[in-house]
């Protein structure tokens, strides 16, 4: 037996395989335990009616999925996700691009600006939520205090308590916490822009906007697609900043699918139905990712 083990290790090819698997297996095991197993178990739970405590899970087939179709709270939450995806993607990418281009050619204090813009990114979304919850406080928050101090009392609002303003207010907080990431990645992408093309455009008489549209943005397409894909997925899965600031309120004004799922599964103890919601959320993420990865690959070709 020891001889066969010795021969195994004497074979370089087998030894390489063994080494490779030795590195892969722990990560694979973690992936199976913490991703694959919960994923399939969630699918199973989504086919049951269960309160999360009783020992028996009643199998109900696709009933939970049938109920999803007529669930107005789900559609309301998805519409908020859609708003988040659109505004929460366009705004940070646009701000990052604007600031990146502005600082690209080198300005005094470049490191300072880069640090300041990136600083909110290092904060956990929970911290961003707490900061902005305080900023929006109707009584002593800096936003209302400033408005009152300059005589604009009429504009002072209960930002997070107004059903029409709450979602845009949280999106603004989310954009603040995220645009620095877009800025830094775009800055890195700008270093690869071919300066000869910029110079050629200048010689051809292209103005700033034309250079941006026809030279810089095409040159950043891989970077922009990557950021956009990443941001879109975040928009589908957004949870923490909303939970910290409004918990989906006032009323249902800021519920997104993740907060609604959490509420249903853990607050209302409808774990089976909550699992069906989680599967829907996963599917939406998957579809969004697939579409944009396809676009990116097509762009690469």
């Amino acid at each position: 037996m020891f001889e066969s083990i010795r021969q195994f290790f004497a074979d370089r090819k087998l030894r390489d395989y063994a080494t490779a698997y030795a590195f892969v297996i722990p990560a694979l095991a973690m992936y199976v335990i913490f991703v694959v197993y919960p994923f399939f178990y969630t699918i199973y739970l989504s086919l049951t009616k269960w309160d999360g405590a009783k020992p028996v899970k009643e199998f109900v087939g696709l009933l939970n999925y049938q109920q999803l179709v007529a669930d107005s709270r789900l559609w309301s939450a998805l519409s908020h996700n859609f708003i988040w995806i659109v505004l929460g993607t366009v705004a940070p990418v646009a701000i990052g691009l604007f600031l990146g281009v502005l600082l690209w050619r080198g300005v005094r204090g470049m490191v300072f600006f880069r640090t300041v813009y990136f600083l909110p990114v290092v904060l956990a979304p929970v911290a961003v939520g707490i900061i902005w919850k305080w900023m929006y406080n109707p009584q002593f928050g800096p936003i209302n205090s400033t408005l009152r101090a300059v005589g604009l009392d009429v504009l002072a609002k209960g930002w997070l308590g107004d059903p029409y303003l709450a979602l845009p207010a949280i999106i603004l907080a989310g954009v603040w916490g995220y645009f620095g990431f877009c800025f830094v990645v775009i800055m890195a992408g700008l270093q690869n822009i071919d300066m000869e093309q910029i110079d050629a455009a200048l010689v051809d008489g292209a103005n700033g906007a034309q250079r941006l549209w026809y030279v810089i943005i095409p040159g950043l397409r891989h970077v922009l697609t990557m950021i956009t894909t990443f941001t879109l997925i975040l928009g589908v899965n957004v949870f923490d900043i909303i939970w910290i600031t409004t918990r989906g309120g006032p009323g249902r004004a800021t519920h997104v699918i993740a907060t609604y799922t959490y509420n249903t599964a853990f607050r209302e103890s409808y774990v089976g139905y909550g699992s069906a919601l989680a599967i829907v959320m996963g599917l939406v993420s998957l579809v969004v990712s697939f579409i944009f990865i396809s676009i990116r690959e097509r762009g690469g070709d």
Partner: peptide
């Protein structure tokens, strides 16, 4: 009352106070 009733009630009463329901 059960939890699903409570969360719906609480959310809806906020919307009632805001004139949305």
């Amino acid at each position: 009352t059960p939890a699903n009733f409570n969360t719906t009630l609480w959310e809806s009463n906020v919307e009632l106070a805001a004139g949305r329901l």
